[in-house]
Each structure stands twice: as structure tokens, then as C-alpha cells.
Simulated scan of single mutants.
Amino acid sequence: MPTLTTREKLIQAGHEVFYREGFLSVGLDRLLNEVGCSKQTFYNHFESKDDLIVAVIDEHHRWWSSEIRDRIERVAGSDPRGQILAMFDVMYDIIHDPDYRGCIYINAAVEFPQPHHPAHQSARKAKADGVALLQDLAERAGATDALVVAQEIDMIIEGALITQQVAPDCDVCTIARRVAETVLDKYVPTRV
């Protein structure tokens, strides 16, 4: 395994502690102690804690963009309609992981509700890329309106993620998948 740079260590440690405890509740000094670097070293890599938070969100997004594609393909193969529905199988695995602390993008948007804040913008971009993935899959599945399919499926996913945080005993993935199938039945022609 390659040795991490100080910047990479800060992003990795930031990801672990911010995801576990929240972006705003963790002070910079604590994070620097965990990594073992000085403030001067930190400021050689980042302008501020907010700059690190954006780097954490962006790095998570780079990783997740690849990871979600790999996971849905493992579940559904190359079938785009199946890959859309596989999102709910992947979601099930994620939300039932003991380390799950909610969607990092939703967490960031909640902690930084101002739309102009860089962390909020970074989370919003990641979410928009998720819609773009769904739109691509819907187009490949032959949807009559791929953007509408993507937006509706995304809304189902977001609702399921929020519901899971509020009511973890609810079977959100089964319910969400059932609703998603209805959307797909409406917009994606059945192949004979």
C-alpha cells in the first residue's frame, strides 16, 4: 500500500471523524492531533477547516462515483433497468452497516444549509451527479423521459435515506424499490 501524503492523511482522518461525529462538532485541533501534524503543516495544504471539509466531500464523491457503478453492476450485470433497481440492494447493504451514519452529502447539506457555502455546493454537485447516473441508466434502458425517471428515482432514494435516519426500523429499501418499479413500469417499455 502506498504511503499517504500529509494532505491525504488529513482528508482520510477528516472523512472518518467528520462522518462519525459531524463536520461542525469536530475542532481542527482535535483533527490535527489525530493526524499528528501542526497547524502550519495543515495550512500548507488547506486554507481553512471549510477547505478540508470540501476536500473530504469531494474525495468521498470521487470514490463513491466509481464504487456505486461497480456495486450495481455486480448485482445486476449490464442491464440498465436492473442497475437502477440494484441501487436499492446496494442501499440496503450500506444502511445496515454498523458504521453507517447517514448520507455524507445530506449530512453536509444539513450542517451547512446556506446554498452558497462551499460544503453545501460540493454536496449538491455530488447529488446532481447521482441524478446524472440515473439519467444515463434510464436512457440506456429506453425510458420515454430519462430525466423525469432519474429525478423521480432520486427522490425515492433521498426519501428512503432520510426515512432510514428517522425510523431505522422501517423497511425503507423494500418500499423504495417497490415505488421505483412503478416509476420504471410507467416510463421504461417492457422488452419482449
Rank of each mutant, 00 (worst) to 15 (best):
94 I>R: 12
34 E>H: 13
107 N>R: 15
132 A>W: 00
142 G>N: 07
116 H>K: 12
76 A>W: 10
67 E>P: 01
136 D>K: 15
138 A>E: 07
124 R>E: 04
37 C>R: 12
120 H>W: 14
44 N>E: 13
30 R>E: 15
141 A>F: 06
85 L>W: 06
137 L>M: 11
105 Y>C: 09
100 Y>L: 04
99 D>M: 10
97 D>R: 02
32 L>F: 13
140 R>C: 00
87 M>L: 14
37 C>V: 15
113 P>S: 08
43 Y>F: 14
98 P>I: 11
121 Q>R: 15
95 I>C: 15
109 A>Y: 03
85 L>V: 00
105 Y>N: 01
149 V>D: 01
77 G>T: 13
118 P>N: 12
147 L>S: 06
126 A>S: 12
63 W>M: 13
123 A>N: 09
41 T>D: 07
150 A>V: 06
59 E>C: 09
53 I>L: 00
151 Q>G: 01
150 A>Q: 05
105 Y>Q: 02
35 V>G: 05
45 H>P: 03
123 A>P: 01
54 V>N: 02
110 V>G: 11
120 H>C: 10
68 I>D: 04
148 V>C: 05
58 D>I: 13
141 A>G: 04
69 R>V: 14
57 I>Y: 11
150 A>N: 07
113 P>C: 08
35 V>E: 03
107 N>H: 13
71 R>T: 02
114 Q>F: 04
123 A>L: 06
77 G>W: 12
143 A>V: 02
115 P>N: 07
56 V>H: 04
147 L>C: 05
96 H>G: 06
128 A>I: 03
47 E>F: 03
36 G>R: 14
47 E>T: 07
153 I>A: 00
154 D>Y: 15
132 A>H: 03
90 V>G: 07
147 L>P: 00
90 V>W: 15
42 F>L: 06
93 D>I: 02
149 V>A: 01
99 D>Y: 11
95 I>T: 11
93 D>Y: 05
131 V>G: 07
129 D>Y: 15
44 N>Q: 13
90 V>S: 11
83 Q>P: 09
55 A>S: 14
67 E>G: 02
88 F>N: 13
32 L>G: 11
127 K>E: 08
139 E>D: 08
148 V>F: 13
131 V>S: 05
61 H>S: 11
56 V>D: 02
152 E>T: 09
36 G>K: 15
67 E>I: 05
109 A>C: 06
114 Q>C: 08
108 A>S: 09
121 Q>C: 10
135 Q>T: 02
118 P>K: 12
89 D>W: 10
143 A>S: 14
41 T>R: 02
90 V>E: 04
58 D>H: 01
33 N>V: 12
140 R>T: 00
36 G>I: 06
77 G>P: 05
143 A>N: 03
94 I>G: 09
74 R>E: 07
138 A>W: 01
69 R>H: 14
148 V>Q: 12
100 Y>K: 07
143 A>Q: 03
90 V>D: 08
133 L>G: 08
117 H>G: 06
